[in-house]
Design a protein around this nucleic acid. Structure first.
Length: 1183
RNA sequence: GCCCGGGUGGUGGAAUGGUUUACACAGAGGACUUAAAAUCCUUGACCCUAACGGGUUUGUGGGUUCGACUCCCACCCCGGGCACCA
């Protein structure tokens, strides 16, 4: 170990000893600068090259963004915490990696460039320099040889490299996406820069804009990100926030078929009998399907019989003729046949297979009406086939010339379905037809090539789509009374041709698109929507037809973009149903068991339907209650409902009978029935009751006579509405209270299933899976997490290493060409595209594949990408071959302790975890979680308790604090303020107190030098052994508190010790304190106040650094007190304290306590029923 | 609206089932000093009492317990996160 040459130090810092000598306070300016210089020279905090296995600790701070404002007093809080912990670990023999660096890319530098025209690198480098100096002035023990800077090409080269690796793995992809766009600043904004739907800089409303963007596929890791949280030591609230962000929901995916509802009054479009012989009911029919089969085919071939059945199941009427001469077809003749036998009209849907499509294209121009929909499955356009088989019959079947314009005019909607695995019709033919006809073009994979399988489910999706929904409450499906699609749901286009109010629907969709984020998420926004008229869905549980709506309260980005609406059991659906008058059907009843009169074992069980009437006074805010004479009950007006009887009528009857009031006005009914179980004492039976609540208001107080029989049972008492809580149906009453306060609401909890056929009576939780099975649904897990959008139309970030070539498409930059450097010939002014797009030098690039000139990706990466892996770079910061050496990373990682602000709870911490897992899968690291232990630091507020800000003028500058009080005081004060994770206000008075403490320590040594002197282990009151005990207790407390990150109480423990030393010295007139004790104190202090501790340590005559010393141990035996104070309580109240020898027997303590004069007063003449004795703490007499 | 965290002297906070207010700040009184600063000592919730002592008190109300800041229930207030996630 390097020894200090005190002579040399003295020579360079001659003032240091004298500056403070004889003064009450020490000179922090000189001492701190001196030791910072010496430590730096000696490389005291260099990281060991090869940490010993099991002896390594990686202690990390979240690296700062080097802003122009310089260091904030909040920064040193976390830095001091990790510094204390690192120093503590080193003193306990650990090899510690404790680095610092710069999250240097980001918006402010670029905005500054826009404003002042100063190149971002220039401002950033200057800011880093200032930050580094400020951090160094705090005496933090970072190993500066490992400094990293994300804006350095040597760093972002590897950020780009990691991007390419993710790209190779399919974890980086490009797609069109809606992004936040600020119309005033002409730029895309990150989600976190949008505050309440407004731009954080200019406050204009942010709109959604569709742009091609790069994403990282973090959703692939949703489950692992969730699972990993169980294994790491992080603050619970942070873990919870991540869990919520990932948002895992278990539920079911269930299909709802779309049907064509029966309608009266529409003329049958086809007035002839069909081959299948199905009767055509006159005056009432459904839209009709006409099937046109293929060459050599028949309606019993291929998918036809299956499709017919499926469509009929959905209420469609199908006509599937056998076409004349299928093997030697004459298209014109076939068309004649159809025209002769069938009548087509605006509701007709023609479905064709293969050559049937040619027939349809020849048929349509000859129609004098417009049909609804033409669906051509794998239609040919020419007689060129993939199998090269000659088909002479086809060559002569028609002229293969089509009047596309006319065809287009004769169908409302045309769809062309292509099989991507087709082995007969070449791919370009259906495509060309679709193009000519401007038709909907759908590419699918058929089960058998060219749709030859007896079942082709994809076709059903085109012809009769079903709506897939995700729900976490399949148990409520019997109560699904309507469905809702998100306005963006592409399914709407599929079924559009059947929608009667198309114009209205389109208008709604357009309006929804134009809405700003603010309007869509506006508080208490009223729900809007439009019904899709002309189609219905079938509730798969009830088989009933239910309406389909579109509404923007359903989001496309979650689940399937469609829901089944259960208004009775979902708040949103409830509000929507109320507004649009949709039916509400209860299928779950809250299940309550009366805790005061619970059902009794062995009693008869009876079932009843009951109604409770809440009767309001005509003028006052009072309601009627009945006070029972035979029971200790006070109830609403209450009674049974006969099977089939109207609940409201029954309630009216009861009110009349029991109270005589007769002029009632019905106000409302609790929208759900409650299932309650209790013991009915007056009848001596158990009751299971369906409880209904009805509210009336008395029009006046006119009253009929009440029968004597009723009068004998109970008396009418008016009570305040606020007292409802006290009434007797205790278990149900909480729902009534909510009803009275908030009005009608949906019941969203669990309970007993009702109105659900064979599932009635089950509890909702167990019904979930049973019902899912019953309706043919699948269990499904959904996540809220979306993929991470990393594109930024910004300059000051790492360029995305991709080029676009006209011939070869998207191409990755080869590794050898990295880094893609940021150009300097840039105009920063915002125009809506990335500034990189306007750099000439940047865009001079050749396609890595064909070497022709190509276009560069001009977006840069989100700065969160840079910070997702910096913790790995610290383990190997100078490597120019790889981002980091695997072995070196493995020696130090994962990070053992990570400290930073809670504002990164989701973003940075989630992204870094994602990177770690992706790197693990690619074999670059061998662990799953980057940060094993995480601790948050709280905000430091201004002295006024407000968040520090320039405009409020409450900013504390750390430079000023260090200048006035010194780094040691600043460090210690920030630790002493309160718990690390709490937000706490700065107090200028408070920091003085800490300085006073350090001065006190200084005087303890300084006044007479540090003297070796005989250990007078007596405290100021002359008691032997107390100081020794206190010293060991302090070691214990400080040690435990550092490990637990409870630095505030560690500081207070040292204050207590120093106060004791100081008083001891005064009381005994001793010059200085015992050397051993002094050294222990300094060691405890050294992680907190490293400069002062080192200075005093050297003064004690040492030549090596205190920071290389071993952490002090304590002696359990010394901590144990010889005598203890026992608190004497009588009936739990403190009456005295008695002093007894430690480990006294209970008997002895009891005697001593009873002997105490004050305790005696309270025990005199009382019988002691019980004595509670807690060893060494308390004795309680119960009389 | 939902989900977290919190509410303790004049102030920052300590105590996670056992004497509420450790430690520090501010305040009051005293010592030293010509004086101030600095330092040191004493004091320090509220009400009753001359005092011994007693009573009340950890946001409010209730409960569990010999005993509750601590555990349970309801409510109020503050801070943070999410926000139509089916």
């Amino acid at each position: 170990m390097n020894e200090y040459d005190h002579k040399k130090i003295e020579k360079k810092w001659p003032a240091s000893a004298k500056a403070s000598a004889g003064k009450q306070a020490y000179n922090h300016r000189i001492i701190e600068r001196k030791w910072q210089h010496v430590w730096d020279k000696q490389k005291l905090y260099a990281t060991p090259k090869n940490p010993r296995k099991g002896k390594k600790q990686y202690v990390l701070d979240m690296f700062p963004y080097p802003s122009g404002a310089g260091l904030h007093v909040g920064h040193p809080e976390g830095y001091t915490a990790t510094d204390i912990y690192s120093r503590y670990l080193r003193m306990n023999g650990y090899d510690v990696l404790h680095p610092m660096g710069w999250d240097a890319f980001g918006l402010p530098a670029e905005n500054y460039a826009i404003e002042k025209g100063i190149y971002p690198k220039k401002t950033t480098d200057a800011n880093i320099k200032r930050f580094r100096e400020q951090i160094k002035s705090l005496g933090l023990s970072y190993d500066w040889a490992r400094e990293v800077n994300t804006s350095d090409p040597d760093y972002y080269k590897w950020t780009q490299w990691l991007f390419l690796k993710l790209y190779e793995k399919g974890l980086a992809y490009r797609k069109e996406a809606n992004v936040n766009w600020c119309p005033k600043d002409q730029t895309v904004l990150a989600n976190e820069q949008v505050i309440n739907g407004r731009c954080h800089r200019c406050d204009s409303e942010v709109v959604q804009k569709l742009l091609p963007q790069w994403f990282f596929k973090i959703t692939d890791y949703a489950d692992r990100l969730l699972e990993g949280l169980g294994k790491i030591d992080w603050p619970e609230p942070i873990k919870l926030m991540q869990r919520n962000w990932i948002g895992k929901s278990e539920g079911a995916e269930i299909g709802f078929e779309i049907v064509i509802p029966a309608k009266a009054g529409i003329q049958s479009p086809i007035a002839v009998e069909d081959k299948s012989g199905s009767p055509t009911r006159s005056g009432m029919t459904k839209p009709n399907f006409v099937f046109l089969h293929a060459f050599k085919g028949s309606p019993s071939d291929d998918f036809w019989p299956w499709l017919k059945k499926e469509i009929e199941k959905r209420g469609g009427k199908v006509y599937a003729p056998q076409l004349p001469d299928p093997a030697e077809p004459d298209i014109e003749e076939q068309a004649d046949f159809l025209l002769k036998n069938y009548k087509f009209d605006s509701s007709t849907v023609i479905v064709t297979h293969s050559l049937g499509g040619v027939l349809a294209m020849k048929l349509l121009p000859r129609l004098n009406v417009k049909i609804s929909h033409l669906i051509m499955v794998a239609p040919p356009l020419r007689t060129i086939f993939l199998d090269n088989k000659p088909r002479p019959a086809l060559n002569k079947c028609c002229d293969w010339k089509f009047d596309f314009k006319k065809i287009k005019q004769k169908a409302e909607l045309i769809s062309v379905v292509k099989d991507i695995g087709d082995n007969i019709v070449p791919a370009d033919q259906p495509e060309e037809i679709a193009g000519e006809l401007s038709a909907r073009f759908i590419e699918v994979k058929a089960i058998d090539p060219h749709f030859h399988s007896p079942k082709e489910p994809e076709l059903l999706n085109v012809i009769a789509p079903s709506i897939k929904i995700f729900t976490t409450r399949p148990d409520t499906i019997f109560g699904a009374t309507y469905m809702v699609l998100a306005p963006e749901n592409p399914l709407i286009q599929n079924i559009e041709y059947r929608i009667e109010n198309r114009g209205e629907v389109k208008e709604y969709i357009e309006k929804a698109k134009k809405k700003t984020e603010l309007q869509r998420t506006a508080l208490e926004k009223e729900k809007t929507g439009v019904e899709l008229k002309g189609i219905k869905a079938i509730n798969p549980a009830t088989k009933e037809e239910i309406p389909i709506w579109i509404a923007d309260y359903v989001l496309m980005g979650y689940g399937t973009g469609a829901i089944m609406a259960v208004p009775a059991h979902d708040e949103r659906d409830f509000a929507f149903a109320k507004k649009y008058n949709l039916s509400i059907k209860q299928v779950i009843a809250p299940h309550v068991i009366d805790m005061i009169n619970p059902p009794k074992e062995g009693k008869k069980n009876t079932k009843r339907i009951m109604v409770h009437a809440i009767v309001r006074h005509p003028k006052e805010n009072k309601i009627i209650s009945l006070k029972w004479k035979s029971q200790p009950w006070q109830t609403f007006v209450t009674g049974g409902v006969e099977e089939g009887e109207d609940v409201i009528k029954a309630a009216e009857r009861e009110v009349r009978e029991e109270t005589g009031y007769k002029n009632l006005r019905f106000v409302g009914k609790l929208p759900y029935t409650i299932f309650a179980e209790f013991f009915a004492a007056h009848k001596d039976v158990n009751r299971a009751v369906w409880a209904n609540f009805v509210m009336f208001e008395l029009v006046n107080l006119e009253q009929d006579e009440v029968t004597e029989e009723e009068k004998a049972k109970h008396e009418v008492v008016w009570i305040d509405v606020g007292e409802v809580r006290k009434l007797t149906p205790v278990a149900e009453i909480k729902y009534v209270v909510v009803w009275l306060e908030r009005g009608d609401t949906a019941y969203t909890g669990d309970g007993i299933v009702l109105n659900s056929d064979k599932f009635n009576g089950m509890d909702s939780e167990s019904a979930k899976w049973e019902i899912t099975k019953f309706v043919g649904g699948q269990p499904k897990t959904q996540y809220k997490l979306r993929d991470w959008l990393i594109s930024r139309q910004r300059y000051w970030g790492a360029p995305i290493p991709i080029v676009y070539c006209q011939d070869c498409g998207m191409q990755a930059i080869p590794e050898k060409d990295l880094p893609v450097k940021l150009p300097t010939d840039v105009d920063f002014r915002p125009t809506g595209e990335s500034p990189l797009a306007r750099s000439k030098s940047f865009n001079k690039v050749k396609c890595p594949n064909c070497k022709k000139s190509a276009r560069r990706e001009t977006d840069t990466m989100d700065t969160f990408v840079d910070s997702s892996w910096y913790w790995l770079r610290y383990t190997d910061p100078k490597n120019d071959k790889k981002p980091f050496d695997k072995l070196r990373a493995h020696r130090w990682c994962p990070v053992d302790t990570y400290v930073g602000g809670a504002e990164h709870a989701v973003l940075h911490l989630m992204y870094a975890r994602f990177f770690c897992k992706a790197l693990k899968d690619m074999g670059y690291v061998n662990f799953n979680e980057p940060f094993l232990k995480l601790r948050n630091q709280g905000l430091i507020l201004g002295p006024d308790g407000q968040k520090m800000s320039k405009s409020k003028g409450n900013v504390i500058n750390p430079d000023d604090v260090v200048a006035e009080f010194g780094a040691d005081t600043m460090r210690m004060y920030e630790m002493f303020m309160g718990p690390l994770e709490d937000a706490k206000p700065w107090s200028t008075e408070g920091i003085r107190g800490v300085k006073r403490f350090l001065d006190k320590v200084w005087r303890l040594f300084e006044k007479h030098g540090a003297l070796p002197h005989p250990s007078p282990l007596r405290d100021r009151r002359g008691r032997d052994g107390e100081v020794a005990s206190l010293l060991d207790k302090t070691i214990k407390k400080v040690t435990e508190d550092i490990v637990a990150f409870k630095f505030n109480t560690a500081v207070s423990a040292m204050m207590i010790l120093v106060n004791e030393f100081s008083a001891l010295r005064q009381a005994q007139g001793v010059n200085g304190i015992d050397k051993k004790n002094a050294e222990t104190l300094l060691k405890l202090l050294s992680p907190f106040a490293p400069h002062l501790a080192e200075e005093l340590w050297q003064k004690l005559g040492h030549k090596t650094s205190i920071h290389r010393e071993k952490w002090p141990r304590y002696d359990e035996k010394l901590i144990k007190e010889d005598s203890v104070s026992i608190v004497v309580q009588v009936n739990g109240r403190v009456r005295a304290t008695v002093k007894v020898v430690a480990d006294s027997s209970e008997e002895h303590v009891k005697e001593m306590a009873q002997a105490d004069s004050n305790a005696k007063k309270y025990l005199e003449g009382k019988i002691i029923k019980k004595v509670v004795y807690v060893r060494g703490k308390i004795i309680n007499f119960v009389t």
